[in-house]
């Protein structure tokens, strides 16, 4: 069973290496600029400077993304008029898949379309969905990989924290 033990060792080692890189709080750095193609117009991410932005990367085929929509709507409703906005960047290569998703889970916040995934490339996404909290100064402050329902209140506290700055 020597080889099996070696394999187990390899698995454990690689696990350790991967787990090391998932801390959500990051050193503040300017959020890379993005041109956002909304349904009706094109804007820049930097246009939202002065607001706290919850920047969410999603796709119609991603299961946790489905669970994040009701929560993002709730956050938008709660804080949308207090200097906060959700911006969701859709990465579906086919627009009709995104539209079909939104017809069932309507978004009450700006949705940008990036079928080529250029924004995802710029932000070097490690998983789907990935979300970033951007402070009023336009700096990336917190990153989340995946969407965990049980962490919703923690996410909300982070938003409140940045809004209070």
């Amino acid at each position: 069973m020597g080889p099996i033990r070696a394999l187990a060792g390899a698995i454990t080692l690689s696990a350790g290496l991967l787990l090391a890189g998932t801390a959500p709080v990051m050193a503040a750095q300017p959020a890379p600029e993005l041109a956002l193609q909304l349904a009706s117009k094109q804007v820049n991410l930097s246009d939202y400077k002065g607001q706290v932005v919850y920047l969410d990367f999603w796709a119609s085929w991603c299961k946790p993304c489905q669970r994040s929509f009701p929560w993002m709507n709730e956050m938008q409703a709660k804080y949308g008029d207090k200097g906060f906005t959700v911006i969701a960047i859709n990465l579906d290569s086919e627009r009709k898949l995104a539209d079909s998703f939104l017809s069932k889970l309507p978004a009450h916040f700006p949705v940008a379309y990036d079928p080529e995934g250029e924004s995802a490339q710029a932000y070097k996404l490690k998983g789907m969905p990935t979300s970033y909290l951007i402070d009023k100064a336009g700096n990336l402050r917190i990153a989340h990989q995946g969407f965990h329902v049980e962490k919703q209140s923690k996410y909300e506290q982070e938003i409140q924290g940045l809004m209070a700055e």
Binding site: W61, C62, K63, Q66, L97, S100, F101, S103, K104
Partner: peptide
């Protein structure tokens, strides 16, 4: 195993 995502999306399109 992302069960049901596309299926439900397509079904949803039909519903819409």
């Amino acid at each position: 195993k992302n069960k049901g995502t596309v299926a439900t999306a397509l079904a949803g399109a039909a519903c819409a």
